[in-house]
Design a protein around this nucleic acid. Structure first.
Length: 567
RNA sequence: GCACCCUUAGCUUAAUGGAUAGAGCAUUCGACUCCGGAUCGGAAGGUGAGGGUUCGAUUCCCUUAGGGUGCACCA
């Protein structure tokens, strides 16, 4: 039963002068349950009804006839507060779970519309460092969230597999590289010589010229250049895949920058044909002064392509290939201007879809506290090191608290990595993050391990009770204490939170709801002894535990975090 | 210089324009002879500044201070 709808229809019959839909949008859920389950604020009616809001509330309330599912209606100042019967609240949630299982948190509102999500997109031949974590996990979570809402999602890893860094790398490899060392230490060795290149190039600018000429050779299809390029790509992908495997992340497309090499010319021609291209300081640009933005550079003065050229080509290609409803770009906030510029260029090209279907999903900067991460200066923290430390700590805690646990390594992996992922998506994306290992590896309070622990507890009860599925005849009236009701409501809210997370493109909405469910579960757990309750009541409580565990598992899965049954 | 983002408790932060600004960490006091103490309960600690719009502003607008970022041939 949709309580909001029922209440709205009831209110629409009074002299409030609003339709049920309008009222529906005005109904609030009070932060404090003392104020009821639903509330209707009457402030806005003051203008049309020409009366003080508290009097309006009194007046409207007096016209209401209390339906069965409402236990009480109270007027507090300008609010009309509705209290839903506890049994009806619990029943409406658990019966949904009995009927649909975790599918109750999903939806089909996406109706199979296609959403492309461009995320992770690391640069080949550079180490996968903590700076790549955010795009990777946020993008992956959005993919899961949209999928749960019935969208068809295409996850795209737009690899940085072309460009000047390869020219530099080839020069560096030819000067200081060692095949065996590269094969042994793979990307670390590549990274070492890449950093060395930048150090040496400061005093020997001719190295940069050499790098450019190698890039030209790559573009001309030179055999040696392309073989080295392919080799670097293979080495990098091996490392990236190792990390993606650990994070449980997959992609539907790996079409990166090199994929668009033969597609950019057409895009450039199209921009030129549409009369948008002008020459400035030797380069080909699209002037955006009319939109209060600096010009968008399309071609370098030497004719080379640039970042916007590639993104424009890719967007056109993706629209043609996938006919997306939306295309999301999960990249750092500092690329704001870049996206605004090339989105505008596409719009000026006459692609009307560009304005509302291309969306930049920015997130805040990750720093070490003493400056920006920089591959060139070798100032990085490797993703793998962070993951290893987290897993190591998890294993240590398991040895301490639960030494007899089966599959310790696997569980430590789930918990350690869960902690890192959860920490990254606990707050709004836009916040800058100063890397703080103590915080990331803290397993107490509002953290991933807390959520996993709560889930393990719930599983443990179900296991002890030899619970196998809910029976259909549950006496919902046996669940009536405040903690149980609050837990049921937190579980029941998960579906709406998934929609909210998609609307805002904010996975933290899911993290926060998980914390809410767990908090309520632990409160419920501490105030009700489930195993020792009388049989009928035990059955009802077990159903609630089952629903809570399913909701937690579902939410963690949306974030890309595993939920072990014991830990 | 121009543009974008951020500012809430010692720290990290939440709040579709609504009721007493909600949490976690740290600090401190407590809680199973009982389902997992990676837990739970309590205490203490508050919106950078100034205007405006509104019945009502942490939220919207303007000014201002502090911090971060971007702005031509890197991505």
């Amino acid at each position: 039963m949709d309580f909001v709808k029922e209440i709205a229809e009831m209110l629409a019959k009074t002299n409030a002068g609003l339709t049920a839909e309008e009222i529906s949008g005005m109904i609030e859920t009070p932060a404090d349950t003392k104020n009821g389950d639903y509330a209707f604020p009457c402030f806005r009616l003051a203008k049309t009804l020409r009366k003080a809001p508290p009097l309006i509330a009194q007046d409207i309330a007096s016209q209401l006839e209390k339906p069965d599912f409402v236990s009480d209606i109270q007027v507090v100042n300008a609010y009309i507060n509705f209290y839903v019967n506890k049994t009806d609240t619990v029943k409406s949630i658990i019966s949904q779970f009995v009927e649909n299982g975790a599918a109750m948190f999903k939806s089909s509102i996406g109706s199979e519309k296609v959403i492309c999500i461009d995320y992770s997109s690391p640069n080949i031949a550079k180490p996968f460092h903590v700076g790549h974590l955010r795009s990777t996990v946020i993008g992956n979570s959005l993919k899961n969230i949209y999928t749960a809402l019935g969208y068809k999602v295409v996850g795209i890893n737009h690899l940085g597999d072309w460009g000047t860094q390869f020219g530099k790398l080839i020069v560096a490899y030819k000067l200081w590289g060692d095949k065996e060392a590269v094969e042994r230490d793979d990307i670390k060795e590549l990274s070492r010589i890449y950093v060395k290149f930048h150090q040496e190039a400061e005093n020997k600018p001719e190295l940069n010229d050499e790098a450019r000429s190698w890039l030209v050779k790559m573009q001309e299809g030179d055999k040696e250049a392309l073989e080295l390029w392919q080799w670097f790509c293979d080495i990098s992908m091996k490392e990236f895949n190792r990390i993606y495997d650990r994070l449980g992340i997959t992609f539907d497309s790996y079409a990166g920058e090199s994929f668009y090499n033969d597609k950019m010319q057409a895009a450039v021609e199209e921009i030129r044909e549409k009369g948008l291209l002008t020459t400035s300081e030797g380069a080909q640009i699209v002037d955006l002064e009319a939109y209060n933005m600096p010009p968008c550079l399309i071609l370098r003065s030497d004719g080379g392509t640039l970042y916007p050229t590639r993104d424009i080509s890719a967007a056109i290609y993706r629209k043609k290939t996938y006919d997306f409803y939306k295309c999301l770009y999960v990249t750092a906030l500092d690329q704001n201007l870049h996206f605004a510029q090339w989105f505008k260029v596409l719009e000026l090209m006459g692609y009307s879809w560009a304005a509302d279907s291309l969306v930049h999903i920015p997130f805040g900067l990750v720093s070490l506290g003493d400056g920006k991460l920089s591959t060139r200066q070798g100032h990085v923290v490797l993703m793998e090191d962070i993951l290893n430390q987290a897993v190591e700590k998890a294993l240590h805690i398991i040895e301490e608290k639960n030494p007899d646990l089966a599959d310790k390594e696997k569980v430590a992996e789930d918990v350690g990595i869960g902690a890192v992922i959860f920490d990254d998506m606990f707050n709004t994306r836009i916040k800058n993050i100063v890397l703080d290992l103590d915080r990331m590896l803290n397993f107490d309070g509002e953290t991933g391990p807390y959520v996993q622990y709560t889930h393990a507890r719930a599983c443990s009860i179900l296991k002890r009770a030899q619970y196998n599925g809910v029976s259909s005849d549950i006496d919902y009236s046996l669940i009536s204490d405040e903690a149980s009701i609050a837990l049921a409501k937190a579980v029941g809210d998960m579906g709406a939170k998934v929609k909210e997370a998609a609307d805002k493109n904010e996975p933290y909405i899911i993290s926060r709801q998980l914390i809410e469910i767990c908090k309520q579960f632990n409160r419920f757990y501490n105030t009700n002894n489930i195993m020792q309750s009388e049989d009928k009541q035990k059955q009802a409580r077990l159903a609630l535990v089952d629903a809570a565990a399913a909701a937690i598992r579902f939410g963690l899965a949306l974030l890309g975090i595993n939920a072990p049954e014991s830990m």
